[in-house]
Design a protein around this nucleic acid. Structure first.
Length: 568
RNA sequence: CGGGGCGUAGCGCAGCCCGGUAGCGCGCCUGCUUUGGGAGCAGGAUGUCGAGUGUUCAAAUCACUCCGCCCCGACCA
């Protein structure tokens, strides 16, 4: 393509509303433009990158035995009512009514539609397993879109759904997708890591997220330096302590006056104790029922773990009214002794035998409280947020923290949707059985943004070759020098004849301008056609990533480039 | 939704406190010179100052309302 004919608006100014470097560069390099909050247009150059990535995704999905289809974006409310998500999905689901006043929504994901399709068409074990996928636009009315295409409302996603006869089959399907994802992100040249994850509102048994490592990533992950354990911080497990508490003699409970002392810090300062000796009592509302969660004073409750442990739909910190109801006191003095709520405790309580906690009485705390003696704990569980000092739950080695961008997620759904929507088949014996499902997503635009986040320098984007919109740009230094320009054109024609995607920067601009633009848009190889080298019968090839320059005889350039580009 | 910030030319911004003339840099158009890392000179075009209402002889500037965008918290590919 001739640059002069391209729709490629580049800019030298950093857009004022872009925070992340990938967002800034994607705007400056003319890859995309914002239409409205969380909604973006891809320009020709950006769309090329998108299509490159989609092609890699397609190839690997097909290789893994999945089949591509295309599902509707507009979906009827009935399906969502059937799965139960019409109520549970919340405001992210964009709902509207058509002219007949029928309730509809824009698909934020497609479990309902695919399950409906499959249950209508697949009736026999002979037709299983199946894995169906699509690359489609999703709409999620995000609370707060940000970071450009990284977290937007309308976005492209590859979503795949597997249907198996049983759990064992589903495990195999899951593994295939896991492996396909490894290949996809490896082919893109990304530094990534699969981590164990919480399955969130999509539901299901367990899942892995694929994280592109980036300090700017929204997700915190931890991983083990010794074994291959890695998990989202929300999910990271903490082992149950080995010992069952110190065998000390705990003095009887003592109630002390602590006027206005509410927080752990204040309690420690007032009573002269360390946070490790204090028990924090948090009152949660689990689907409206109060639950007291106990944890050591220096530690933090992981609400996702609490939610999963309780199996509730909505978990939030209790309001003042509920706190007063179960503790008989205002916020800040809750404790386990005499509380009118179910008590669950983090494992950290197992080894506490003489602790400080709220007295459920305004301006009072208790000393020398012993769990088991002074109150009963219904359940102990892993309920806290991991810390860097925690050992790896698998091998006990040191754990490390990092940040990442979630570009893919694989879920084992079990029978959550197939049961609710009655997706069943007849087995060999003629018995009706429920299909076992899995679902597998990849954020298309987000992966591209993550690639930019991970591959750029002060001059702009550095595309990994497999994602590059064009692998090569030819830059004649002066288009007004006939011999020079026609040498550039000859090379351009030769490469195009070879089926290569190449830009000829035929603009009547100064060389510096063209170099800056070529760097900004991140083309991996730039051929500079200038008078000095051409006088020697040579052209220069500059590698964007390394900055390395080599000069080759004009006659060898085309073959050399073809080799470079096809080698990968 | 709660908290904070911003809206003036295609982009980045100044002007607003203290009301009276809309400005700078980049980009864009024309011409000449220039041509290996964002050229120089000369000339030129471009604005319902986010929208509405009010105060005033007079509003980008003051007041109120609304809208949009961005950032910090609860969601997820």
């Amino acid at each position: 393509m001739r640059y002069s004919e391209m729709f490629l608006p580049t800019g030298r100014e950093v857009p004022s509303d872009a925070e992340l470097i990938s967002h800034q560069l994607m705007i400056r390099a003319g890859l995309m433009r914002k239409l409205t909050s969380g909604v973006y247009s891809y320009l020709p150059l950006g769309y090329r990158v998108i299509r490159k990535f989609e092609q890699i995704v397609r190839e690997e999905m097909n290789r893994a035995g999945a089949q591509e289809l295309f599902l509707p974006m507009v979906q009827p409310a009935e399906l969502w009512q059937e799965s139960g998500r019409w109520v549970h999905y919340g405001k992210e689901l964009l709902r509207f009514r058509d002219r007949h006043d029928r309730e509809c929504c824009l698909g934020p994901t497609h479990e309902e539609v695919i399950t409906d399709l499959v249950r209508n068409e697949i009736k026999s074990y002979r037709q299983l397993p199946r894995n169906l996928y699509q690359i489609q636009t999703k709409f999620r009315d995000e609370i707060r879109p940000r970071f450009g295409v990284m977290r937007c409302r309308e976005f492209g996603m590859k979503d795949a759904y597997s249907f198996d006869m049983d759990e064992a089959g589903s495990e195999i399907s899951y593994r295939k997708m896991f492996d396909a994802y490894q290949r996809i992100f490896t082919r893109c040249g990304l530094n990534f890591r699969p981590v164990e994850a919480d399955s969130g509102s999509i539901g299901g048994k367990y899942s892995h997220e694929f994280m592109v490592m980036a300090d700017s990533g929204e997700d915190a992950i931890c991983y083990c330096g010794a074994c291959n354990y890695a998990a989202n911080l929300d999910k990271a497990e903490i082992s149950r302590p080995a010992e069952n508490g110190p065998a000390c003699v705990t003095p009887p409970i003592e109630e002390v006056n602590t006027p206005g002392v509410r927080t752990i810090d204040e309690v420690c300062g007032f009573l002269g104790v360390v946070p490790e000796a204090v028990v924090k009592t948090l009152i949660f509302s689990a689907d409206g029922t109060p639950v007291a969660v106990l944890i050591r004073g220096d530690q933090e409750v992981n609400e996702i773990k609490v939610k999963n442990f309780l199996g509730c739909d909505l978990l939030e910190l209790a309001d003042d009214a509920m706190i007063r109801k179960v503790t008989g006191s205002p916020r800040g003095f809750a404790g386990a002794v005499g509380i009118k709520a179910r008590i669950i405790a983090d494992y950290s309580l197992l080894v506490m035998a003489d602790c400080v906690m709220g007295a459920n009485r305004e301006d009072f705390h208790l000393l020398h409280v012993k769990p088991g003696r002074d109150f009963l704990i219904a359940d102990h569980a892993d309920l806290r947020v991991v810390r860097e000092s925690d050992p790896c739950p698998r091998c006990g080695a040191e754990i490390r923290f990092a940040r990442g961008i979630e570009v893919g997620h694989v879920f084992k759904l079990g029978t959550k949707y197939s049961k609710a929507m009655r997706a069943a088949y007849l087995d060999r014996e003629g018995h009706e059985r429920t299909m076992v499902m899995g679902c597998y997503g990849i954020g298309i635009g987000r992966t591209v943004a993550a690639a930019v986040e991970q591959n750029h320098d002060a001059d702009g984007i550095i595309w990994p070759l497999p994602l590059a919109p064009y692998p090569v740009i030819i830059t004649p230094v002066n288009v007004n020098e006939k011999a020079l320009f026609s040498a550039a054109e000859d090379l351009y024609n030769a490469l195009e004849a070879n089926g290569m995607e190449v830009i000829l920067d035929d603009r009547d601009e100064r060389a510096g301008v063209k170099f800056k633009d070529a760097d900004l848009i991140g083309i991996p190889y730039r051929v500079t056609v200038g008078p000095r080298r051409l006088a020697e019968g040579k052209m220069e090839i500059k590698t964007r990533r390394s900055g390395e320059v080599i000069a080759l005889p004009v006659s060898e350039v085309a073959a050399f480039l073809k080799d470079l580009v096809l080698r990968t």
